[in-house]
Structure formats: C-alpha cells, structure tokens
C-alpha cells in the first residue's frame, strides 16, 4: 500500500533531526564526529572557548576581566532550549491547567467577619437614612400642598362671605332708603305747610 510506505519513509528521516538515540541515522551522524558522544561535545566546547579567550585576552588586562564576565554561562529557559514538550521536567499532561477552580475561601476569623459586618452595616444605614430623608421630603411637600389647599379654600370662603355681606348690606340700604324716602316726603310737606297735610280720603254723608 503506497500511502503507508511513504509515511514510514518520512518518519525515518525525521528521526535524524529529532535526536532519538536508537535510530539508525542519528547513530551514523554521531559516529562521523568522534567515537563517544559525551567526549565529542566537550571537545567542541573547549575548542570554541579557548579560541575566543586567546583572541580577546591578547588585547589588554581589562579585556580579560570583561571576558570573564562574558564567560558567565547564560542560563537558558526551557523554551529557549527547544526541548520536546514530552521531555520536560513536568510533562505536559501532568501540569494543571491554569485559571481553574481554586476552591472556596472560608471566612471564619472574627476580624474579617467584623469588617464584612461593618461594611454591610454602613451600606444598610446609608439606605435607611436615604429612605428616611426621602420620606421626610415627601412629607414636607405634602404638608406644603395641604397648607396651600387650605389657604385657597379659606380665600374662597372669605370671598364668598364678602359677597354675601355686600348683598346683605345692599338689601338693608335699599330698605332703609325706602323708609327714609317715605318719611322725608311727608316732612317736607309738613314743613312747607302749604298743602293739606291730610291725604286721607274722607267720605261724607250728607
């Protein structure tokens, strides 16, 4: 079967780069450098460092000190090393996922309970206070409206009374005037004395 074959071939090539020790290709590559793998690595490193040291150290004393500082080994992080993820100190599967449930935080000491209580109390007191303020304001408004309405009623009443009084007075005045008129007419005639005072009709029987 063609597709399966191709896959096997690819995986063989891949082992060359992956550094799996037992694979044929990797062993071949190592044998080209030197006999043992640990030794070959060391030799390569030492060669590199010595060559650098010679080149820089030959310039000045200060340069040597700098060189020492530079020599300090860099500490690589796991990411920089590019180690396959399965080869880490804590393998991928074992590591706990971040941001998960962390469990309940219980409050059982007196201090924290008191702080929560005082917070809640302050909030409640504020609420009650605002309620009371509102109620008081509403009450004031209601009182003011009531007073206004009463005042209006009073005004209307007084106006009505006034008109009533006026009407009564008018009537009185009119009747008084009529009476006065009647009396006055007689008197005038009496004063004049020219006309007969008695207006009574008399009937005489001959």
């Amino acid at each position: 079967m063609a597709p399966t074959r191709t896959t096997t071939i690819k995986s063989k090539h891949a082992t060359n780069k992956s550094g799996i020790q037992n694979s044929k290709t990797s062993s071949k590559a190592r044998s080209n450098g030197s006999s043992g793998d640990g030794v070959s690595k060391k030799s390569a490193k030492s060669k590199r460092t010595t060559s650098k040291g010679v080149a820089l150290g030959s310039v000045t004393g200060k340069g040597a000190a700098l060189n020492k500082l530079r020599k300090k080994r860099r500490v690589y992080t796991e990411r920089e090393l590019g180690i396959p993820t399965l080869n880490m100190i804590t393998p991928v599967g074992v590591e706990k996922p971040r941001g998960g449930k962390k469990g309940k935080v219980f409050v059982d000491d007196r201090e924290s309970m008191l702080t929560i209580l005082s917070l809640v109390h302050a909030e409640k007191d504020g609420q009650i206070e605002s309620k009371m303020m509102k109620a008081r304001q509403m009450e004031e408004i209601r009182e003011a409206r009531k007073a206004e309405a009463e005042k209006r009623v009073e005004e209307r009443k007084s106006k009505l009374d006034e008109t009533k009084e006026g009407l009564k007075k008018k009537r009185k005045r009119a009747s008084a005037a009529r009476e006065l008129e009647g009396e006055g007419g007689r008197r005038e005639e009496e004063v004049k004395g020219t006309k007969a005072l008695k207006l009574k009709k008399t009937v005489s029987f001959a």
């Binding site: 309940k104 935080v105 929560i116």
Partner: peptide, 22 residues
C-alpha cells in the same frame, strides 16, 4: 458542615441587618 465563604457571609449579614441594629 462547613464555615461560610466571603460572599455567603456578606449575604447573611445583609439579611440580618434588615431587622437588627448595630
């Protein structure tokens, strides 16, 4: 049986504070 969490404590106190004073 367990102690109350922070939010539970807060809810409890808020409820009780409806009826009680300081």
């Amino acid at each position: 049986m367990r102690p109350l969490t922070e939010t539970e404590t807060q809810t409890l106190f808020a409820k009780l504070a409806n009826y009680t004073g300081t």
